[in-house]
Design a protein around this nucleic acid. Sequence first.
DNA 1: CGTCCACGTCTAC
DNA 2: TAGACCTGGACGG
Length: 415
Amino acid sequence: MPEGPELHLASLYVNNMCAGVVFTGAVRKSEVSKNPDVPFTCEAYRITAASRGKEVKLTLTPMKSDDSKKRVKAGQADQPMEIVFRFGMSGYFCFTTEDELPKHAHLRFYSKEEPCRVLSYVDARRFGSWHPDGKWQPDRGPCVMFEYESFRENIVSHLSDRAFDRPICEVLLNQKYFNGIGNYLRAEILFRLNIPPFASARTVLDGLQSEDVFEDKKPLNNEITDTKTSDGDKQKQGKGETGDLLRLCHTVPLEVVNQGGKGYDPQKADYSDFQAWLQCYYVDGMTSIRDHNGRTMWFKGDPGPMAPKDSKAPKAKKRAKKEDDHDYTEEKKVASSASKKNAVKQETVTKAPKKETDAGSKEAVSKGRKTDKSREVNAPQHEKKPTARGKKNSSAEPTTGPQRRSERTTRQNSK
DNA sequence: CGTCCACGTCTAC
DNA sequence: TAGACCTGGACGG
């Protein structure tokens, strides 16, 4: 759910769902949350939202009342309050009736309706946070989607920063420069330009200008153009019709925003559109290894010179999840309508069968459970292919559906 | 039932 | 550069 596009869609969701809605009372926090209390109580207020990179800001605005001039009741807010949210791995906003409150609704705003509805910040894993100070996190850079010019300028003018000493795929997750880019976006962006994920960031970015020379070019074109125009070595990416790396850090997230979350029918909201949109992340036939921070990097072809030498390949499972959680597409609609859970889309990545090279034995993974990341998995050196696991359906390709992208499992071995 | 994995930061050796 | 912080879904036994 939460990379720049999802945070922005969340802000649109709040603005759509809460337009015209009057909220009242105190802002309530769940017992279990360690985030700060939000000291705001008001007889009547409205809520609006805005996003910047991977943050969303809610503005609570007190409404004027006849007696507002006279005396605001003690403890009642008369000034707007702003709260900045970061979504962690599982945060999202949801507007429901009180009895439909989802599990893990950690911060709640109650409407004045009867029966009332509640705008909730929901976060199962609780990695997300909110900050009543109302400030965008100071060290985060300009939004890749909506502050494009300053985003470019910020990078071009700081290329000497040691932060760019690292592989481009790791720098893309540095929010000081790429506010809004996350794990699926970095894979999609690098894949489209055929940039080895572990190529030096500075080398890849060197020479790019603050001004986007593709500015008035046509928006984008999904062709993968594997034209591979790279005869020479100096592949200064950026040719072709898509634009340079920085431009894609802007346009690719916007493609997700423009999908609006998915189909036209909010009730059916499933994630097949999003899955169909993915060209690399978690896509069958692609390769994946863990970067130096233990995050899985999906790509195709040459990993690049700075690839972790010991590099481990992530397991290889199946996948039938939903990428884009939460359907922020619904325009306002009565929250009470029955929403049936339609079956979730299944299908998916069956790992390509491969010969499992690993010796199996080797040093046992003595460290037991670690944490979210950094699992030591012996990687078959040559082709690190995730081991195959059972395959489910999906074998035959429906004549109609585009399904999993590129069935061209062309294994373009690097060498 | 147990293991592995997940759209992200944070902070402590 | 490791953990820490969390819950839950998909699989495997």
